[in-house]
């Protein structure tokens, strides 16, 4: 496989929190344009896995190569990786002291060194795209959860990332707001963005994902195309998990 087509390459990654072995021998390769959904019970290490990709968590063994850059103790290179990898958090993490527009222009101005006017234009383009441009001058605290999460997606997109990581983006939203966020994510996926989503939205996984990964106890238990994953799960733990979440 051509190295350039590889977005993320994880080989034999291990991580411990203290003595707790949270990631065990993770092997994962993600091609450009891949859309991957990661699911699993809480505490299975799925969030930790994607947080290792932009080094919000540090892995202790194995190799992680993102966009051709290996993650190690070279801090400069890590900031390079982070500039190319957008992340959306469960709790939005917008900057409450900045307006919606400023939230979006901050990184383009300070990391990409874009002129103010250009950053502004870029931000408005993406705010338009997540359909929230009319709120650009409000502050995060004045928006609903769904709106905040859409802003968070726009903020990440303003850096023109090559990869987007979603860490349970809809888990803290009201049912009525989940759809508006998922719609934005689906639109993003159809534009060919490389995406890794930790989510329990199985409808989203069915429509969007190229692959679904099931994690349990810090390891990848099953990995398959969505159709096969949902209709013919192999591992008993996967079957149990799916029956739990699909039974309602």
């Amino acid at each position: 496989m051509n190295e350039n087509q590889m977005a993320i390459e994880m080989t034999g990654v291990d991580k411990w929190f203290g003595t707790f072995h949270v990631l065990k021998q993770i092997d994962l390769s993600v091609k450009r344009g891949d859309r991957i959904v990661i699911c699993g019970p809480s505490g299975s290490g799925k969030s930790t896995l994607i947080r290792c990709i932009n080094r919000l968590e540090e892995h202790q063994q194995g190799r992680i190569v993102v966009n051709g850059i290996e993650l190690n103790h070279d801090l400069k290179r890590i900031d390079e990786v982070r500039a190319e990898v957008g992340m959306v958090f469960q709790s939005f993490n917008l900057f409450p002291h900045l307006s919606i527009l400023e939230n979006c222009t901050l990184a383009p101005i300070w990391v990409r060194k874009l002129p103010k006017a250009q950053a502004h234009e870029l931000a408005m383009k993406y705010l338009e795209r997540v359909q929230i441009a009319d709120q650009a001058h409000k502050f995060p605290g004045q928006l609903s959860g769904g709106q905040q999460q859409r802003v968070a997606i726009a903020r990440a997109l303003c850096m023109n990332p090559k990869i987007m990581l979603f860490d349970e983006p809809t888990s803290s939203l009201d049912p009525e707001m989940i759809k508006e966020v998922l719609d934005v994510m689906i639109a993003l996926a159809s534009d060919g963005m490389t995406m890794l989503c930790v989510t329990h939205e199985m409808g989203f996984a069915r429509t969007v994902a190229d692959r679904v990964i099931f994690m349990d106890a810090g390891q990848i238990v099953e990995e398959n195309e969505p159709e096969a994953f949902f209709n013919r799960p192999q591992h008993p733990r996967t079957k149990e998990f799916l029956s739990q979440i699909l039974s309602h």
């Binding site: 919000l56 801090l75 990898v85 992340m87 958090f89 900057f95 002291h97 901050l106 990391v111």
Partner: peptide
Amino acid sequence: ARGQYEAASALGLGFWRANLLIILPQALR
């Protein structure tokens, strides 16, 4: 909140920029 540091880091802001632009304005306030 830790999320503020994480969001700043995830955008590629280094230690000084994250503190000057994100953390300190909120903390001092």
